[in-house]
Amino acid sequence: MTRETTDDHPDADATRRSTGSPNRRARSALNRGTGLETIKVFLGDHAVSDRMDVMMSTTLGSCVSACIHDPVRGIGGMNHFLLPEVPESELSGNGEAARYGSVAMERLINALLCAGAERRRLQVKLFGGARVIDSSYDIGGMNSRFALDYVRAEGLILTGQDLGGASARRIRYFPHAGRAMRRMLNPTMVVDTITQEHHFMSNLRRGPIDGPVELFIATDTDEG
């Protein structure tokens, strides 16, 4: 079942092209069901747009996405991160630190400001942070607490949250209107990706992970 988390914002002219993160792993395709250009935002990505014909999509287990909107400018963006703070061992990496919340939030906000948004108007919705793997290491809870603390510390406006629980989520975000929709997923739908996340976390305990990581990648039958 899909749930809308906000009301529609009145439409306005939108001409700015969608943009992905510096590592360019966000993927765009036409969604046949909605007729909208859909940007799939993977781990370490962010995307920003003010176009009325754009939808952003991601799937979250332990990860968290922030959907941030300037209602006056009619522009919004989404990110996707796995861990709260970037370790010192990865500070000199080539963009991969964006899978950490402290970097992901800064990059998304900066991208919005560069596109004409104003910080004082930014409205934030937070999603994800589930406990989808059987482990004493509750990374979903850590991500949720980090995201909420970040919004408070930065003086941003929190307008919605859907965090925690034990189920993965699929998020659709309409950046021009600032509207988001959430669908809870049956564990059988994401069993392979939950296994990938567990494997990633196990490797992380032994040392830093090099290179890009893509979790919760949609199948050919899933249009986001």
Rank of each mutant, 00 (worst) to 15 (best):
T2R: 06
T5C: 01
T6A: 14
T6Y: 00
D8L: 11
H9K: 12
R16L: 15
R27Y: 01
A29I: 04
G35R: 10
E37I: 08
T38L: 01
K40T: 11
L43G: 15
R51Q: 12
M52L: 15
M52V: 15
D53V: 11
V54W: 03
M55S: 13
T59S: 11
T59L: 13
L60E: 02
G61M: 10
G61K: 07
C63G: 10
A66C: 04
V72K: 09
V72D: 02
R73Q: 09
G74S: 08
I75H: 03
M78A: 04
M78W: 00
L83G: 04
P87M: 09
E88I: 14
E88L: 14
S92F: 02
G93Y: 04
E96G: 07
G101M: 03
V103M: 05
M105H: 05
L108T: 03
V124W: 04
L126C: 01
G128A: 08
M142V: 04
M142F: 02
M142Y: 02
N143S: 06
R145L: 12
A147F: 04
L148V: 05
D149Y: 00
Y150E: 05
A153Q: 10
G160F: 02
D162L: 08
G164V: 09
G164L: 08
G165Y: 05
A168N: 09
R172I: 01
Y173L: 00
F174T: 00
F174L: 13
H176D: 04
M181K: 08
M181Q: 14
R182K: 02
M189Q: 15
V190A: 10
D192I: 14
T195K: 15
H199N: 14
F200S: 06
L204M: 12
L204V: 03
G207P: 13
I209K: 04
P212M: 10
P212E: 11
I217D: 12
T219R: 14
